[in-house]
């Protein structure tokens, strides 16, 4: 179809009084992520125009991406949980617990000077901790029928408490191998792309594709839309829920390894609002808290909107209190735009 072709007659919305819209544009506008992406693009364009010599030049996209990398990894897991109509408030604490356990191993096996062997084992410990904690929470949600809000709120406190018991509440010294920090934390692939960004986008790509194109992904949407229907068509809903919560735990474990590599410490007290940040990003990306809707691409956009906004406002020299106001307004406006589009589509 060309740009000049008239709209199909059977489409009531497209009367002849309206200018014809190219079909590729209409398809794009109907895509779930298009509008939030539009908001992101608008923000980037605005800051680039306002500070052309600074935004996306001196402060480049890799810096924004590096700072967003860990939240992105957590966000991917959270997308799955929210699509099955669940919630995970424990991500930040699970990250801390994984970081602390892996740090304890590092401390007793070479500390800051330890080699790749220690790094490998401590990484495995972090991933396993996250996976097991997540699976336990999943089991409580699916089999014990405790609401996910309660399970993960309990998990939020318990994981942080466990981490404080192990460390006495202080970030231990020598928690990370210097090799890990230099290579992964501050190293770059081909001298260009920070490894943290490579890892985050690798995880995003894999789990984005799994969600969009595999049976595992379809089950996730089906359970979120209607768990009873999913059960009746023969999906093992309980087992799937355990897997979804285990996945978000695993990704929290991965996040902890990235955190240790980048910040070089466990930051026990620095993760109390990770859950809100991540849930906000997922919802901003178009996911429904009632389940059945959402996408990893949307979450990527949802992670980047606040990141771009806060860096852009600092670069423009906006006072901190106004930054918080602006971020709040944009968050609500972006979700409102998305709802507005959905209403239009559902009624039309």
């Amino acid at each position: 179809m060309t740009a000049q072709a008239p709209a199909p007659v059977k489409d009531r919305q497209e009367t002849t009084r309206r200018p014809p819209v190219p079909s590729w544009l209409r398809r794009l506008a109907a895509a779930n992520e298009a509008w939030t992406f539009g908001v992101l693009a608008l923000l980037v364009a605005f800051f680039t125009a306002a500070r052309p010599s600074t935004f996306l030049t001196r402060y480049d996209i890799t810096q924004i991406a590096t700072n967003a990398a860990i939240y992105l990894v957590l966000g991917v897991g959270m997308t799955y949980v929210i699509i099955v109509a669940g919630i995970d408030l424990s991500v930040g604490s699970v990250l801390v617990l994984s970081a602390v356990l892996s740090a304890e191993y590092t401390i007793h096996h070479g500390g800051a000077k330890s080699g790749w062997g220690t790094i490998a084992v401590s990484t495995l410990i972090a991933l396993a901790t996250g996976l097991l904690w997540g699976a336990l929470q999943g089991w409580l949600v699916a089999k014990a029928r405790v609401p996910p809000l309660i399970v993960t709120l309990g998990g939020f406190g318990a994981a942080l408490g466990a981490a404080q018991i192990i460390t006495g509440g202080q970030d231990p010294a020598g928690a990370v191998s210097g090799k890990l920090q230099r290579s992964i934390g501050f190293g770059k692939l081909f001298g260009q792309i920070p490894w943290l960004v490579v890892i985050a986008f690798g995880a995003t790509l894999v789990f984005g594709l799994v969600l969009a194109f595999t049976r595992f992904g379809r089950y996730t949407y089906a359970i979120g839309s209607n768990p009873e229907a999913a059960r009746r068509v023969g999906i093992n809903v309980d087992a799937h829920l355990v897997k979804v919560y285990a996945l978000v735990g695993l990704l929290s474990g991965l996040g902890s390894v990235m955190w240790l590599a980048y910040f070089g410490t466990t930051s026990i007290a620095g993760h109390s609002t990770d859950n809100l940040k991540v849930i906000t990003a997922v919802v901003l990306g178009g996911a429904s808290l009632f389940g059945g809707r959402g996408s990893v691409l949307g979450t990527v956009i949802g992670v980047f909107i606040p990141a771009v906004l806060s860096t852009g406002l600092i670069i423009m020299g906006v006072q901190q209190y106004w930054q918080d106001v602006a971020i709040g307004v944009v968050l609500v406006a972006a979700v409102y735009l998305d709802q507005f589009r959905r209403r239009g589509r559902d009624h039309g």
Binding site: R58, Y262, Q320
Partner: peptide, 26 residues
């Protein structure tokens, strides 16, 4: 002297704030 920033006790926020500030004020 630049205006004060607040990071709400989050190291990740402080990291991105300092980088943005560096870009705006080399």
């Amino acid at each position: 002297l630049l205006p004060v920033l607040y990071d709400n006790d989050l190291p990740a926020t402080a990291a991105s704030q300092i980088q943005s500030t560096l870009a705006a004020h080399p």
